[in-house]
């Protein structure tokens, strides 16, 4: 497959005012293929935005490089930037200007002018469904409408790669759905490559052809959804909650003896809330559940609640880092 983005050894180091050094991004290598939706998934502060800022030429890398369509972002920044459409997390628009004026200004920054610019603006207003409000000031728009104009600016010059940095932050469910549909439409109808950052596992799973999970400035997993799921393991996890006074060491043995269960363990917990959680690993968790409950009953242990976890990116992140994605 042809790469449109090639990142090698991308590193960003900051020196704080107290002199301490922070490694925000630690030598990232990755390829993004033409026409795919590629998601960077990671908790807040993982280094997603810093990575994207370097790829889009906003901040210079301390080391390494990124090539966009064969153009180095450090050596040929203007050529590389011309291929990228940027949709930042913030609503990066002039609130006191109309939607059309905003589109017009940023279009000119990408070298568009005259009838061609006017035509592109009309097209984009169609895509973001704001033609009837085009002459209204952006400051009068709802949050969702502002987000749509924000995306529209990134689409104006028909970029080969569009990067969207958490575009659904702070929007209502209806606007969120519309934004996700727009992303799918960009790939399906326009063949654009989309680089999408999010900390929401559901969005990454719905949109992405490939996902890179980033934590502490490094990529800890990268692949298609199928590949990542297999890394997460093919087994479901049954989480049983038991009152602390009824818990004992023999329960793990009881659970492991149930048919279909491969292993069981006590889940580590930092808090003492009078409960103990047992994680029971089974290939078909829901099918093994009746046997598990029967065994616990026979052992005289009352189960307070049961939670079935099927493998997903959240599970994978938890397995890789020991932390939840939303922490």
């Amino acid at each position: 497959m042809e790469s449109i983005v090639r990142v090698s050894g991308l590193t960003k180091t900051y020196t704080r005012q107290d002199g301490s050094v922070v490694q925000a991004v630690r030598g990232i290598d990755l390829d993004i293929y033409r026409g795919e939706v590629f998601s960077l998934l990671g908790p807040n502060g993982a280094g997603k935005s810093t990575t994207i800022s370097m790829i889009s030429g906003l901040i210079p890398p301390t080391a390494g490089d990124a090539e966009i369509g064969g153009h180095s972002i450090t050596r040929e920044p203007l050529q590389a930037k011309a291929l990228i459409g940027v949709v930042p997390q913030e609503v990066a628009l002039y609130p006191m200007l109309s939607a059309r004026r905003n589109l017009d200004f940023f279009g000119r920054m990408y070298g568009l002018s005259g009838a061609e610019l006017s035509k592109r603006i009309d097209e984009v207003l169609d895509v973001i469904d704001l033609k009837d409000r085009q002459n209204d000031k952006v400051e009068t728009f709802s949050g969702g409408m502002k987000r749509r104009v924000n995306i529209g600016v990134g689409l104006l010059h028909r970029p080969q790669l569009i990067y969207m940095d958490e575009p659904t932050v702070g929007v209502d469910p209806q606007s969120r759905r519309r934004i996700l549909d727009t992303v799918l439409r960009l790939r399906g109808e326009y063949g654009m490559t989309v680089l999408y950052t999010t900390h929401l596992m559901e969005e990454a799973q719905e949109l992405s052809d490939r996902v890179a999970i980033i934590d502490n400035g490094a990529i800890i997993a990268l692949g298609t959804l199928m590949e990542l799921m297999s890394q997460a393991g093919e087994e479901d996890i049954l989480v049983l909650t038991v009152a602390k006074e009824r818990a004992n060491d023999s329960i793990v043995g009881v659970l492991q003896a149930v048919e279909g269960v491969s292993r069981a363990q006590i889940e580590p917990s930092d808090t003492d809330n009078g409960e103990v959680k047992y994680a029971v690993y089974a290939r078909l968790g829901r099918r093994a559940l009746p046997g598990v409950l029967t065994a616990m009953n026979a052992a005289g242990v009352d189960v307070m609640s049961v939670n079935v976890r099927e493998p997903d990116l959240e599970t994978l992140f938890l397995a890789l880092t020991g932390r939840a994605l939303r922490e």
Partner: peptide, 14 residues
């Protein structure tokens, strides 16, 4: 603060 300056800088503008 509005990020328009950053967006401008992300465009092919010197």
């Amino acid at each position: 603060r509005l990020w328009t300056l950053q967006r401008l800088s992300a465009a092919p503008v010197t």
